[in-house]
């Protein structure tokens, strides 16, 4: 053989590489069992705080007052859903930031970049991992929370709720990747993660309906797909009311985000990558 052949990877090859990335991360996290246990507990504690505050302020009227503002008296489930969807959303940011930053430091980011697997394929693998990990823990934490606070988790339209969850995940990861690009560039994750955490939890309305926000802030909040995601899940399960009156219009908005956000996210990420290659390289930390 005198010339060296190269056959570009097929779709199956890429899929297989993507799943290998997902599997790697799942194996990796399975070796930190304590971490996983904490993830079931944190959203419950997180939701318990406003519940207790609400009971303390409104006493017997808590449920009735809550219903007047949100459309459901079931504030326990409402807050649990908020906290658990937030777990998924903040998980997306954490997992991607952690992937970029940690692998930059350990040198594995460069190690995977010198393979013929392209970064969008790796990115997809990381997203799938994050989605599995955080929806898994969110659903389990929701069920445990319902058990602890004695509410029926199986009410409303569960299929529709899951649909909102899964459709919402995709634009969420699109946005998370813009964030990943920032981490890649500034080589810092802690401070930006903290900032994101508070901003996101406020904007998506984990403990209150965004309809109570002033119009301008509400407008900003509704540019953020997780806001639609959490409201969709709540509407499906608790009937709090869709933003655009019907479920399919709300779903259509999420689909619009879905078609646009991931492509934009990957575009920003690969551009940042290209920029870094032009100077000091993606592995510089």
């Amino acid at each position: 053989m005198t010339t060296i052949q190269y056959t570009p990877p097929t779709f199956r090859h890429k899929l297989s590489a993507m799943l290998a990335e997902t599997r790697l991360r799942l194996i990796n996290i399975s070796r930190y069992p304590g971490q996983l246990v904490m993830e079931f507990i944190i959203p419950i504690v997180f939701a318990a705080m406003p519940m207790l505050l609400g009971q303390a302020t409104a006493g017997d009227q808590a449920a009735a007052n809550f219903a007047a503002n949100t459309g459901t008296a079931n504030y326990v489930a409402y807050l649990l859903i908020g906290a658990n969807v937030f777990t998924i959303v903040s998980g997306a940011f954490w997992h991607i930031a952690y992937w970029v930053r940690f692998e930059q430091e350990t040198g594995t980011l460069e190690a995977v970049y010198i393979t013929p697997t392209s970064s969008p394929v790796l990115i997809a693998g990381v997203c799938l991992y994050s989605a599995i990990r955080s929806t898994g823990t969110a659903v389990i934490a929701f069920l445990i929370g319902c058990l602890i606070f004695r509410v029926n988790p199986f009410q409303g339209d569960i299929i529709l709720a899951l649909l909102f969850l899964f459709v919402g995940l995709i634009p969420l990861y699109g946005i998370a990747f813009i964030f990943g690009a920032v981490v890649l560039k500034i080589k810092e994750s802690q401070s930006v993660l903290n900032l994101m955490q508070w901003l996101v939890s406020f904007l998506m309305g984990i403990f209150f309906p965004v309809t109570v926000l002033p119009p301008f802030v509400r407008f900003i909040a509704q540019l953020f797909p997780p806001t639609w995601m959490v409201n969709g899940v709540r509407s499906a399960l608790l009937g709090v009311g869709f933003f655009l009156e019907t479920w399919y219009l709300d779903m259509a908005v999420l689909w619009a985000f879905l078609l646009f956000a991931p492509l934009f996210g990957i575009w920003v990420f690969t551009r940042t990558e290209g920029n870094l290659r032009g100077n000091q390289g993606i592995g510089q930390f």
Binding site: A17, E21, N28, G107, T108, A111
Partner: peptide, 19 residues
């Protein structure tokens, strides 16, 4: 550098094989 420390040597090699 460039190895996954929580994984075994073999798991590392198989992973890179996939990539």
């Amino acid at each position: 550098r460039g190895l996954y420390w929580k994984l075994t040597g073999r798991e590392n090699l198989v992973f890179f094989g996939a990539l």
